[in-house]
């Protein structure tokens, strides 16, 4: 009879080596075939691993493309500081698209629920268009969500930035077809085959620094839709929502209005790995209100051009 362990593609360092080599291969393919690639970088753990891999892929030369952050204006201060540190440390170039600018110009309207995660799509597509970027790296992983499980490593987007799941190209062997017509671009996901646990084990092995909010800290939080939310520029507790001070950490880092904290005492990467192994919830199910909106929330956002 079989007892199961939590899903991971890793049993040994060999498996991490395989994932690392695959990701580096993908970075180099893009550098060889595209004119203007860009890495989406938020300071979250997945995009931080992405930047680490890009540095390794081109060493001793500098990373041959810039970074882009679509900033909702609802980000945690610790994460933004960390983001800027990484950029400085590796001598990278960062472009920032502020969602607030689009709102100020009247190109976007604040949503009644105050969340800005879905508002990122327009600034992202505008930035891709203005920067003439033809390849856009994202930290998406297939284990995150079932619509993402269907995504190719090279995912063609039409001139409107939309994902057309029925028209995906067959992706055979490790031959990635990045050809596209003018105005189209390709989203590239080097971490496609990584699980959450793989990411953490790689962070451990490579001693990759992360924003402090991934580890336990005391924070005032209030409960909404079953999640612990923090107060911030995006607002605070509504009537009847009680404020508690708890030991929490974040499993994902996104727009503060819809990213929940989990109660945790995990203060080191080792602690986090133990916690993720024992968890009975997926990282998105535990912490992301935006994915709970409907059965096809992620697919719908991707069709509109989301990450």
């Amino acid at each position: 009879m079989t007892t199961a362990t939590p899903p991971s593609t890793v049993d040994s360092l060999d498996a991490l080596d395989r994932l690392e080599s695959e990701a580096i291969h993908i970075f180099r393919e893009v550098a060889g075939e595209f004119d203007r690639p860009v890495i989406l970088f938020s300071g979250g753990k997945d995009s931080t691993v992405l930047v680490h891999l890009a540095v390794k892929a081109f060493w001793p030369a500098p990373v041959p493309f810039p970074l882009l952050h679509v900033d909702t204006g609802h980000n945690f201060a610790e994460v933004l500081r960390f983001r800027d540190d990484v950029v400085r440390r590796h001598g990278l170039r960062l472009e920032i698209a502020e969602v607030q600018d689009w709102i100020d110009r009247g190109a976007l309207k604040e949503r009644p629920d105050g969340t800005r995660n879905p508002l990122q799509t327009v600034p992202l597509l505008d930035s891709i268009n203005d920067g003439k970027f033809d390849a856009v790296f994202g930290g998406g992983r297939r284990d995150e969500e079932r619509a993402r499980a269907k995504e190719r490593i090279f995912s063609l987007r039409n001139a409107f930035g939309q994902w057309e799941p029925k028209r995906q190209r067959p992706e055979l062997w490790n031959l990635y077809n990045g050809r596209h017509r003018p105005g189209e671009h390709v989203r590239v996901f080097p971490l496609s085959n990584w699980t959450e646990l793989d990411v953490w084990r790689y962070i451990q092995r490579e001693s990759i620094e992360l924003p402090s909010i991934y580890f336990t800290h005391r924070r005032e939080v209030h409960k909404r839709d079953g999640m612990w939310l923090a107060s911030g520029p995006w607002g605070g507790p509504r009537d009847g929502e009680e404020v508690h001070e708890l030991s929490v950490r974040y499993r994902t880092v996104g727009d503060g209005s819809c990213t929940g904290a989990v109660e945790s005492e995990a203060s080191t990467v080792d602690d986090v790995i133990a916690e993720v192994q024992a968890s009975r919830l997926t990282e998105r199910g535990a912490t992301r209100a935006d994915d709970r909106m409907s059965e096809a929330a992620m697919e719908d956002r991707k069709r509109e051009g989301y990450f």
């Binding site: 007892t3 899903p7 593609t9 284990d143 619509a147 499980a149 269907k150 995906q168 096809a296």
Partner: peptide, 30 residues
């Protein structure tokens, strides 16, 4: 659990490849 696309669930068929990762103590599976 695996038919991740709206049209797949509507039609009750699988349209595209879904990749899944799971493990038992003996092996890891992609």
């Amino acid at each position: 659990l695996v038919d991740g696309l709206r049209s797949e669930r509507e039609q009750g068929i699988t349209i595209d490849v879904a990749y899944r990762y799971f493990a038992t103590p003996k092996r890891t599976f992609v």
